[in-house]
Each structure stands twice: as C-alpha cells, then as structure tokens.
C-alpha cells in the first residue's frame, strides 16, 4: 500500500467540505421528519387515531429510517467519483506515474469519503436529536448516536458500490447510476436472500438499539461488517481488472 498515508492526509482535508454537505443534507431530512411528525395531528382528519407516538424517540426512529434511504443515496454520491472523477479530471495519470499503487489511491479516496459520511451522519444525528428533544421532550442521545453509527455500516455500501462502479466506468454519471443500481440490488437481496448476504440484512438492528435492546449485537455487527468487507474485496477486484484492461486511458 505504497503512498497511502500521504494520499489519505490530503484526501481527508479535501473531504471536510463533503462532510459539511453530508451533514447539511441529512440534518435537513432529519429535521424535516421531526417537523412532519409534529404537524401530523393537524394533517390527520379530526378524531383519527395517530399511527405513531408523538415522542422524541419516535422522531429519532424516523431519522434512522431517513438515514437508510437518503443516507444510502448520499453515500452513492460520495463514492461515485473515486476513480472516474480522477479519470475525467485527468488527475489519475500523474498520480500513477508516481510510486503509488492504484489500490492505495482507491483506498485513500474511499476512506476519506467514508470518513466524511461518518462525520455527516454523526453531526446530523446530533442536530436531529437536539431538534426532537426541543419539540417532544427528552430521549437518550447515546442510543441515538449508537443507532446512527450502526446504520452507517449498511449505508456505507452505497459508497462502496459506487466506488467499485467508478473503477469500471469512465464517467461519474455512469458510476452513480451503476452504483445506485448495485445498492438497490443489495437492498432487494436483503429482503429475499439470507440476511448475512448483504449489509442491509440486519438493518432492523438500528431500531433495536434505539429500543434499548443492546444484548446479542456482536454477531449481527460482525456479519454486516463482513458483508462490507466482501463488497470492498469485490471493489478491489474490479479496480485491478480495470487497471489490467487499461479502461481509463483514451
């Protein structure tokens, strides 16, 4: 992994802006969910039974649901330019003429984007929790953060899928489309196949953490992480195949 640390430092610096945008986008959707829950009684016909409890914990639950949907999309957008962005900008060629492997370039860029995603999720979870508490009263911050941290694992697969696609595609738009399709495929597979097959297979665990059920979490977390590692291995295989096929040079 030659040169990975030198690259990672720069990539992390460049990813600060990505983290801010990610936090802003996820906070917007998180707070919109809280606001929608607050307005729900006014929207329902008089005398209708509320489908959910009007509590801060329910609001946070809605935020976690948003994370799975919008967070996965944001994740795809973060990963779509890992290689194809460099190819489009012409920045890959000088990088690869330095003593650095393409695997290092890929891993440094992917790690920086995942760090931006993690920072964005953490910030948006805190912002949403603050808003939910101010509207509905107290709920546990630690559980909110822990549930968001767990949800980060499955939604990271969006960035991994898009990053793998970016190694195979020459444009960022193609990478985004292929990455989004692959992420949707993983999500669909979690509904029909074995639960360990995809990182989304244990998605309900985030809600269990919110409910306080913290026992027996180790195995599902390991399974989800393993599914992500398999995805990463597939990415690296795609990357090396693309390098061998010289797909990036006109």
């Amino acid at each position: 992994m030659r040169g990975i640390w030198a690259l990672l430092g720069e990539e992390l610096r460049l990813s600060a802006q990505r983290a801010v945008w990610t936090a802003a986008a996820l906070s917007f959707f998180g707070m919109a969910g809280v606001a929608a829950l607050k307005m729900l009684p006014e929207l329902l016909p008089e005398g209708a039974v509320l489908p959910v409890e009007m509590t801060a914990s329910e609001a946070v639950r809605g935020y976690v649901r948003t994370l799975y949907q919008i967070g996965s999309l944001v994740s795809v957008m973060l990963g779509m330019d890992v290689v194809s962005g460099e190819v489009e900008g012409g920045t890959l060629e000088p990088l690869l003429s330095a003593p650095v492997s393409v695997g290092s370039v890929f891993l440094a860029k992917l790690a920086a984007r995942l760090a931006a995603l993690a920072a964005g999720v953490a910030a948006s979870a805190a912002v949403t929790w603050c808003y939910a508490v101010s509207v509905f009263g107290p709920t546990d911050l630690a559980r909110t953060l822990a549930a968001s941290a767990y949800a980060l694992l499955p939604i990271s697969s969006g960035a991994l899928c898009a990053a793998g696609a970016s190694a195979l595609c020459r444009s960022q738009s193609s990478s985004a489309l292929l990455g989004a399709a692959a992420t949707l495929g993983l999500f669909a597979a979690s509904r029909v196949g074995p639960r360990w097959l995809t990182p989304f297979g244990r998605a309900e665990l985030a809600y269990e953490i919110l409910d306080g059920g913290l026992g027996g979490l180790a195995r599902p977390i390991v399974e989800t992480s393993l599914a992500l590692l398999i995805l990463l291995a597939a990415d690296l295989a795609a990357l090396l195949a693309a390098e061998r096929m010289e797909r990036w040079w006109g």
């Binding site: 900008g89 012409g90 003593p99």
Partner: peptide, 15 residues
C-alpha cells in the same frame, strides 16, 4: 516511477 518525471498532455491538477 521513481526515476521518471512525467508531464502528461493534460496537466491534470486537482482544482
């Protein structure tokens, strides 16, 4: 790669 200073046709600088 350690021996070569390579200037491609496109400057390829990160904006």
């Amino acid at each position: 790669r350690r021996s070569v200073g390579y200037l491609p046709e496109r400057s390829g600088l990160p904006a």
